[in-house]
């Protein structure tokens, strides 16, 4: 009780410092509500003139992220003023693999100039609500994916029980399909599905009295593994 949190939304970070935005500062984060990805931003005007006519564009990116509507910034944004904007995002845009995979390059225009910045999209906002793999399919897929396509990570310093871990992850669309206990050790079998249709299978070993968990990942597209590992870290440490 008290340990279960809803979808994890990272705190906003400064994406465009005022010094690079001719007085415009943008901080932001990403979240997911009701199956929809949102880019949440705060625009702050640190210049001496009002700002108007805001617009946004994304560069091609790994997951085809694209604004689902035009950017709404209540304006004009007066000097020393600050305003929040929530931009729905779809995944119908052009795809080009980025390094790192979740890198997103953004252009923002206003009446002053055009500004560019990059940000990282936390992978769990791309995890779909229907990512719970059928048990039979999970078993077959786990067997089918060769051992060389498995990567292991240690997630250190996790002070949750297996059930708490499971429910924290489930709130972020990482689903537990089966839980087994072998000689006191809890084993969680989990799945997630990314917006581009890539499935990832996970096994999480939780040993009694050990705050370090062992995460094993299997996927037919292993380039997502490192991002998925980071997502587990993020969720289990927040």
């Amino acid at each position: 009780i008290g340990n279960v949190t809803p979808f994890y939304t990272p705190a906003k970070q400064v994406w465009l410092p005022a010094a690079r935005g001719k007085g415009l500062e943008i901080s932001g984060t990403f979240t997911r509500r009701n199956g929809q990805i949102y880019m949440e931003m705060t625009f702050s005007n640190k210049a001496m003139q009002a700002m108007t006519s805001f617009a946004i564009q994304f560069n091609k990116n790994s997951f085809g992220l694209s604004p689902a509507q035009s950017l709404q910034v209540q304006g004009p944004l007066q000097p020393n003023g600050s305003v929040d904007s929530s931009l729905p995002i779809n995944t119908k845009g052009p795809v080009q693999k980025m390094e790192p995979l979740t890198n997103l390059q953004v252009a923002i225009k206003n009446n002053v100039d055009v500004f560019y910045f990059s940000c990282l999209v936390p992978l769990h906002v791309l995890c779909m609500e229907d990512g719970m793999m059928d048990k039979r399919v999970f078993l077959a897929t786990w067997k089918d994916i060769p051992a060389q396509n498995e990567v292991q990570y240690t997630i250190e310093n996790v002070n949750y029980t297996a059930d708490q871990v499971s429910s924290k992850l489930q709130n972020n669309n990482i689903f537990t399909i089966a839980k087994r206990n072998v000689e006191g050790q809890d084993m969680l079998y989990q799945s997630l599905k990314l917006t581009n249709g890539i499935w990832v299978l996970a096994e999480l070993k939780i040993q009694p009295g050990n705050i370090n968990l062992i995460l094993s990942l299997k996927s037919r597209a292993m380039e997502v593994a490192s991002g998925v590992h980071q997502t587990f870290e993020l969720i289990l440490h927040n």
């Binding site: 087994r180 072998v182 079998y189 096994e203 094993s216």
Partner: peptide
């Protein structure tokens, strides 16, 4: 019963991963 088979399969998977 297919569900029982599936439950067994997960138990066997967990066993095999503990004692490879």
């Amino acid at each position: 019963d297919g569900d029982v088979d599936l439950d067994d399969s997960f138990s066997r998977l967990a066993e095999s991963r503990t004692h490879p």
